[in-house]
Design a protein around this nucleic acid. Sequence first.
DNA 1: ATATTATATCGTAATATTGCAATATACAAA
DNA 2: TTTGTATATTGCAATATTACGATATAATAT
Lengths: 109, 109
Amino acid sequence: MGISKTEHFTERQNELATLAKALGHPARIAIIDFLLKTESCICGDIVNELPLAQPTVSQHLKELKNAGIIKGSIEGNAICYCINEVTWNKFKAFLESLFETYNLKNNCC
Amino acid sequence: MGISKTEHFTERQNELATLAKALGHPARIAIIDFLLKTESCICGDIVNELPLAQPTVSQHLKELKNAGIIKGSIEGNAICYCINEVTWNKFKAFLESLFETYNLKNNCC
DNA sequence: ATATTATATCGTAATATTGCAATATACAAA
DNA sequence: TTTGTATATTGCAATATTACGATATAATAT
């Protein structure tokens, strides 16, 4: 139906899926790349970095913000976006835990 | 338009987005969790583990397979699924690289 | 006050995703 | 060969996503 049955899964599974989904578009990866690369907040420079129209970029930023991956604060005329360290660290912890679980002995096919 | 303009992004950005998107559903996280937890391939036991109908599970498995995250092989009556270690390690490397870039000095908002 | 600049929101079209019943396929067991 | 079991595919309805032009909002500069 296009709507996920989130109530049947654990909170961790839902959270991790939400974060992964938010990163599931190249434009949003590019935004995160840029935020990480510049090593500071981005104040009014994202649209020029992406090959997409301004409303589209705004929408992608909104999705990253909804997932809690970035946060924005108004700086006069512009808006400064940066990584939300709380969510980012949570995401990192989720994944490190997943990666820890895996070792090559798993393979039997 | 519902169609991503992948041609404007780097191959890495597209690949990482594809992998993240494939993990962007709690059922698919649950499948991966189960594959990692059992520490071996799963031969005919996935549908019973998930609160979804068999065709829906089959579809999620297909998406994970399309993204290269899992692979399946026919074992008589059943099908054995397991993590595709090549893709998984690539995913891990992508993310470790992302996480390395980030440090708390980034924050200014 | 008016123009400029940066960003968000609205509206809409195209496409994708999610979910499942019904059905098909393919092997195994009787 | 028929029956059962496991999985995939098809078809469809509901919903979500992607993209962008038009427009709105809000601060800055003139």
